[in-house]
Design a protein around this nucleic acid. Structure first.
Lengths: 195, 195
DNA sequence: GTCTATAACGAGATAGAC
DNA sequence: GTCTATCTCGTTATAGAC
């Protein structure tokens, strides 16, 4: 039975390192955290992190992948919880507001701002996140406005909401305006009526 | 007459260094550029930059100050060029779109995303930029909507437009969507009608 | 899997010559 | 004002012991 339950310490450190790296980046960006920071959060040496992730870029790649997967699950959960598209949009906004209330930015939003300094592997992962979100928003906004999902207008609205949220996360934290995201989004969603 | 025209080389390097640092940061962020990068753009040694700016933070402080001043002049010019508030908002949007078309972000937008890793002097300078913009937008949006400038709604609209633009700059570059900023802003401005 | 030790490099910053 | 040379430090990464 020794192989049935292969000591979990390793997977644990791997998983915890991913969590830590994600949180650190959401607060400080790619260039704002080090292996040492991650290791310190787990109470281990930075070499232990290197054992699980050969390079910093690979660590971040894995963190972004996990982030996108979690986000995809959140989106699915929203669709399951609400049928009304406006409610779905509100729940979507709450995802961003939740992170911001913890002083965290969207992981891919920060990385997008640092884009030029990142290797191509990371850039394309970040692009995928944006496209994933835009595609989901297009579907929901099409329902909300009773327009065709393929219309340019719906596409534009989806991009606008995503950009508004990404931008508001940054300034809500900067200026300590607690309801900046939800306030702006509420007006935005209600204006859909006139789109 | 030797003091009448004090050799301009120094001021020149100082000014050019500020320009270079600003451009580098708009593309790469605070942690994405070095003294060497700035120096290379001027064809000098990085020590020449240190002569004019004791530390990196002071260099950036000066760059942000100059950026805010230039922005204030742009805002004044817009008010001088247009009387129609909607035209003024369009011209405002064009400021952001112009930088983005050159693959540059808003200097203070990038720094805001990196906020946690910056010293307090820089953070407060970045906050001032946001407040300066919000105050100007409040005035113009109040005119456009015929509401009181002090109303919470106008305040919220001003924040929303600024956040939308800051967010759209990041994603326009990331996804190479050339008219992302202007497209989103045009809809946003037209929706003011229903605010 | 995790550690100590160390290598290799780049960055910010200073000294002193010109 | 600008240079070469140097210092110091933090960061990524690897070697080898336990």
């Amino acid at each position: 039975m020794s192989t049935a339950r292969p000591a979990l310490k390793a997977r644990d450190t791997r998983t915890l390192a991913l969590r830590a790296a994600t949180e650190l980046m959401q607060r400080r960006g790619f260039h704002g955290f080090t292996f040492h920071d991650v290791a310190a959060m787990l109470g281990v040496s930075h070499v232990a992190i290197h054992y699980h992730f050969e390079t910093k870029v690979r660590l971040v790649e894995a963190a972004v992948a996990a982030y996108c997967e979690r986000f995809a699950m959140d989106l699915a959960a929203i669709e399951h919880a609400h049928t009304n598209p406006e409610k779905q949009l509100q729940a979507y906004v709450a995802l961003f507001a939740g992170a911001a209330s913890d002083q965290r930015l969207c992981l891919c939003g920060v990385l997008a701002a640092e884009m030029v300094t990142l290797p191509e592997e990371l850039r394309s992962a970040v692009r995928s996140f944006y496209k994933q979100n835009e595609a989901w928003l297009v579907r929901v906004i099409a329902k909300a406005t009773r327009k065709r999902a393929r219309s340019a207008r719906v596409q534009q609205l989806a991009r606008g909401l995503l950009d508004l949220l990404e931008g508001a996360m940054v300034s809500e934290r900067l200026l300590d305006n607690p309801s900046r995201i939800t306030g702006a989004a509420r007006w935005w969603i209600s204006s859909l009526r006139y789109a």
